[in-house]
Computed example of a mutant assay.
Amino acid sequence: MYFGAHLSISKGFHNAVREAISIEARTFQFFTRNPRGGQAKALKQEDIDKALQLREEYNFGPIVAHAPYTINLAAPKEETWNFARQTLAADIERMRQACIPYIVVHPGSHVGQGLDVGIEKIAKALNDVLKADQEVLILLEGMAGAGSEVGGRFEDLAAIIERLEVPEVVGICLDTCHLFGAGYDVKDNFQEVLQEFDKIVGLQRLKAMHFNDSLQPLGSRKDRHAMIGQGLIGAEALAKVLQAPALQGLPINLETPGEIEDYRREIEWMKKVTNQ
């Protein structure tokens, strides 16, 4: 496994890799652009090359990009839906240039259209954007299921993938807090959760994890991240999650609400409980 945290690339990829190294991380996650939308910052090839050199020197695993929250592939308004498609297409190309293999995307919110309509719109948007020969995989993120969110159930994710023309370029990113909120008992039955995921979606599609404790109880349908051991999942249960064989080799990134030194301590703990 490769442990990391959500970092900023505002000062470039090279500096972000250096910051990751400073906290003993061997991966990290970052937003492709401002998380609330806006123009993307231009990439510099010199910066990308320096970052690649450091990543190779320190044996980094896959780095994970995260699409902005403003992307809603299920949006009822045509303008908003088109913005989501265009932004995702542009970010796929930018991440290819930066040698980033994954972009995590929230599936979207149907905003009253109904789940089935939301799933159809998400699949249509992806079919318009994705290409069989693209080098960057889209990772649909499992959600807590708040409001009209699509992706709170494994069945939602499977239904989207089933409708894709090139499903081979789509994977899944699971989030421990989101799973717990959605009603999947990662605290006491994580192996059963993985078995259900494998049956409905397929473990081969699991490409990355977000690692968080939860401030809200099982099945709350609320997305409230907590630092490890400071939530209702707890450190003991989260240690067992990390020890699951199915997670070996994956990039696992913290999205806990701490600062950089908190990330350092949490990564140290993650390594300790996995004997790394």
Rank of each mutant, 00 (worst) to 15 (best):
C99S: 14
F3L: 11
L140S: 03
F60T: 04
N212F: 01
T32R: 10
E155V: 10
V241P: 01
N72T: 06
L194C: 10
G37V: 13
A16S: 15
G249P: 05
L43M: 13
L157T: 06
R265M: 06
F3K: 06
Y2K: 08
G145T: 04
A125M: 09
F28S: 08
R205T: 04
G151K: 04
A74R: 04
I21K: 12
L54S: 07
T87D: 13
R153M: 11
E259F: 13
S214L: 00
L250P: 01
R221M: 07
V150E: 02
I228S: 01
I161D: 09
V64T: 10
G147F: 04
D262T: 09
S214M: 02
L130G: 06
A123E: 10
E135Y: 02
S10A: 15
F31G: 07
G202I: 02
S109L: 10
Q39Y: 11
I267K: 01
C99F: 13
I233A: 02
R264H: 14
A146K: 13
G147W: 05
Y58H: 15
E162Y: 14
P257E: 09
G181Y: 00
K11L: 09
S214A: 13
R33N: 09
V104A: 06
L126P: 03
Q243T: 08
V170E: 07
N59Q: 12
D213W: 00
I21H: 05
A132T: 12
L43Q: 11
N127S: 11
R85F: 04
A67T: 06
Q191A: 11
L242R: 04
G183V: 00
Y184H: 00
N127A: 10
I100L: 09
V105R: 06
C177S: 07
R55C: 09
F197L: 11
R85N: 14
R265K: 15
F28R: 09
N275P: 00
A237W: 01
K124A: 15
T70M: 13
A89Y: 06
S109D: 12
E162G: 13
M1V: 12
R224Y: 05
L7D: 05
K240R: 14
